[in-house]
Design a protein around this nucleic acid. Structure first.
Lengths: 128, 128
DNA sequence: TTTGATGCAAATCATTTGCATGGGT
DNA sequence: ACCCATGCAAATGATTTGCATCAAA
């Protein structure tokens, strides 16, 4: 597969190091700033291209909030909780249906006031 | 309240008429095109401003897909199903937890393969 | 008449892309 | 040497905004 003809570059290496651990759900720009302390002249475009690559390889998940992408290295199934005051994004390892059950459920200190759910798949006209 | 000092313009009227009924979840641009057949020289900016106004008044809900806003005049609580093949967005009036229960649940002809859930509220540090 | 709303164009923001050059294999 | 990846800058797409003018109240 294409994996074979993929080059191992320092920039990909450093970008991956910058996000592979951590739960802050950084944006491309935040990753760019962090990586710049190691490779000062790296370009934003390269950061975007490598993030795309990592997402394509399944090493990162993308969470789009407010038309801005956030990158998440946590692959196990989980949901996200966004604090409306501080904007912090938390990983929530509780079953989705459990979280939604009560809209004011206090779970580990979180007060859920609303949720946004989008289901993906194939509609009746497009078969499966 | 501000409601009082709000002017009733033809453009707002026509824009509202263009979306108040219907379940196609149009984008600002699609609404713009539709409205242009009635007011040819209306500007996109005006469409955006009036859509914002309607959202602010709670007459429309916003659904962001792929960094593009879609407007939804259906106010009763519901979820959204997006067909990955044709892109059509359907309103789903089934409880969220019921939809998520089975990731391959066949509901009225829909095959759900994945979902995206974001919970909003206040985290433990921000109190309630 | 007053002043909020409009039309138009320029500005923003996040992200993508074209292209000449550089570096991995 | 090949040719994929990079740096840079320009391009894109969606949405916002500044401003002079227009039109509701």
């Amino acid at each position: 597969m294409a994996e074979n003809r993929r080059r191992h570059t320092r920039q990909l290496e450093v970008i991956w190091e910058a996000i592979k651990e951590g739960t802050s759900h950084p944006t491309a720009d935040q990753i760019y700033e962090k990586v710049r302390s190691v490779i000062p002249n790296i370009s934003l475009g390269t950061v975007y291209r490598n993030l795309q690559k990592l997402v394509g390889e399944g090493k990162l998940q993308v969470l789009t909030l407010d038309r801005t992408q956030h990158f998440d290295p946590t692959l196990e199934r989980h949901e996200h909780f966004i604090c409306e005051k501080c904007g912090q994004v938390y990983d929530v390892f509780v079953d989705a249906k459990e979280m939604i059950l009560s809209s004011s459920l206090s779970h580990e200190g979180f007060t859920v006031s609303s949720h946004r759910l989008a289901l993906y798949g194939f509609c009746k006209h497009c078969g499966k």
